[in-house]
Write a protein that binds this DNA or RNA. Structure first.
Lengths: 336, 336
DNA sequence: CTGAAAGCGCTTACAG
DNA sequence: CTGAAAGCGCTTACAG
């Protein structure tokens, strides 16, 4: 039943040459090795006819690289990460690289396991939206000399490539928009993670308020526990709207918080755009389709994916010293 | 800069034993090999202290398996596939397996490349939502003796495990619901792919109409080209609603068609639930959040993932003859 | 123009 | 209770 898989040895035998010759032909070094046209053609024909594919495992063991890039995100089913993953996959594919990905659920332990897994699979480069606490593990791959690009979340202690957005400015834009609409009581609904990016989203928010002459003490900031189920979050938000009826605008710091928030608002008697302005981080179909449509801080996903891939391949082909690059991309407020 | 990676040889040297002994200890065969407690402890301590991880590439080359399952879907950024991927990832992880995934964009050529890639990486099993035309390639992995489970799409010519839903009955339920609401002119918006699953969705629809005494000739079925951009699809749908003002209910055969459809309906003067009943295949946040909420044919994703994983691991541990299993799960119409 | 041989880091049948 | 050695399928420095 299990058909025998061909090896380079089989091809060499069929073609009456050594495996060395076959290997050189397969790796495009036939010309530089002055292998005769006749032999090249003979071997290529046999390879094609038999559908021979070199065993990448053996090749990896020998060469130490794998043509695989490891991608580590918090949750691949989050549309933002799924979208980035898809873009990275396309772009890497065109250069002959594959992406393998896995979710960490924002646990440093799981991140460590994944990094170890990827290490033991000899991935050639890493793209990581890191969980807090993963610093040591990330350092270890950097010191292995592998290209590493962090995105979405930044680890300040680490001297490493990063592609992200200007979270501070994004939140600031959002508040400015609220104030421009005459709102005086904006709220921020964020997550209780101690992540630089999340902190920046809050800082931009409070800075915007301060500029508008609204005191810090008047600011409404709700930090939703990361581990909450959606149902728990909805209850929490309903409570917020009940206790603070003066809130006239809300900025949601993540797309899933915005979704919970919209569901919570449905259960109140607040009417969006009349009683309450809403802006969500990350754009998506869901905000376009909502009635009314929801304004969003759209991350430039295409540019993010481009910047990541560019840096990865720059380092993969680097002969010279690597330079750390931090790319901060602007976010566009889409008003609807 | 690049710290030296440890090998089993280094550990053996440090512990003053042979690599054979280290290997047996690492693979939990220390007891059956009667290795002394002292040696076991010494080796384990060194392994731990040095953070040694066996090179999986070498292990794969030697054993012929990889503890990796390959997942091939049409588009990982589609929420249905992203959700399934995440569930499979969790379930496989618990059994010590990793999932690697890639998107085919429904092209047989890309499917072939991916299968070849996975083959050359020696994945242990395959989970595939197959594109039409991939039959030969799938046959080749089956004849390699690897476990294969298809899902979402079925290839009738192939004698292979499958996990799917009862598409015929789902569409039939939807039509029945429309008729129960007094609708007499249901439309089906589907895709022009020649896939069994899509055909079944149409067959259930027309069967429901026929049962209600509505003639085939009166049925409105729009087949949207697969390659359409969203904008093209929206134009097409607006055209449909203009030309067939009698349509009083619509079943969308995929989640992305429903999204385009809802956007198109926004541009007409039709009011959902008043002028037009809507049911979408695949449930999601987007339908829950829409105003009004949209009824959906919810695929039992958890059950689908469970059935796939169960079959995969059953075959991976199979000592006896494998039996082909086809699991068809019921779909629930969620009326909103 | 071409090949024999070493070696990547493991596992395991065999021997003692 | 433990180890020497073969071999998985490649790549490549070296030799001719």
């Amino acid at each position: 039943m299990s058909t025998k898989v061909l090896s380079i040895r089989d091809i060499a035998a069929k073609a009456n040459v050594s495996i060395t010759t076959v290997s050189f032909i397969l790796n495009g070094k036939a010309v530089e090795r002055n292998i005769s046209k006749a032999v090249i053609e003979r071997v290529e024909e046999i390879v094609k006819a038999d559908g021979y594919k070199p065993n990448q495992i053996a090749r990896s063991l020998r060469t130490g690289n794998s043509q695989i890039i490891g991608l580590i995100v918090e949750d691949i089913s989050n549309p933002f990460f799924a979208g980035i993953a898809r873009l990275l996959e396309d772009k890497a594919y065109k250069k002959g690289y594959k992406i393998i990905y896995s979710s960490t659920e924002n646990q440093a332990g799981k991140t460590r396991e994944l990094i170890n897994l990827f290490k033991s699979r000899q991935v050639d480069a890493y793209i990581i939206a890191p969980a807090q606490g993963a610093e040591k593990d990330i350092e270890s791959i950097i010191s292995d000399g592998k290209p590493v690009v962090l995105f979405d979340r930044y680890l300040p202690e680490l001297d490493v490539n990063y592609v992200g957005i200007d979270n501070y400015d994004a939140s600031y834009q959002a508040v400015k928009h609220f104030i421009g609409e005459g709102k005086r009581h904006p709220a921020l609904v964020t997550v209780d993670l101690d992540i630089q990016q999340i902190q920046e989203r809050e800082d931009g928010f409070t800075a915007g308020l301060r500029e508008a002459g609204i005191e810090d003490s008047a600011a409404v900031v709700l930090k939703v526990p990361f581990a909450n189920t959606r149902e728990q979050t909805i209850v929490l938000l309903e409570e917020l709207f009940k206790q603070r009826p003066d809130v006239d605008s809300v900025l949601f710091a993540t797309n899933y918080l915005a979704i919970s928030g919209l569901l919570a608002i449905k259960n109140t008697n607040k009417i969006i755009n009349k009683d309450l302005s809403v802006i969500a981080y990350d754009d998506g179909d869901i905000f376009k389709l909502h009635t009314p449509q929801i304004s969003a801080l759209a991350q430039p996903v295409e540019e993010i994916a481009d910047a990541i891939i560019r840096k990865i391949f720059q380092e993969l082909s680097a002969t010279t010293e690597k330079t750390i690059e931090r790319t901060i991309l602007p976010v566009q407020l889409i008003v609807r």
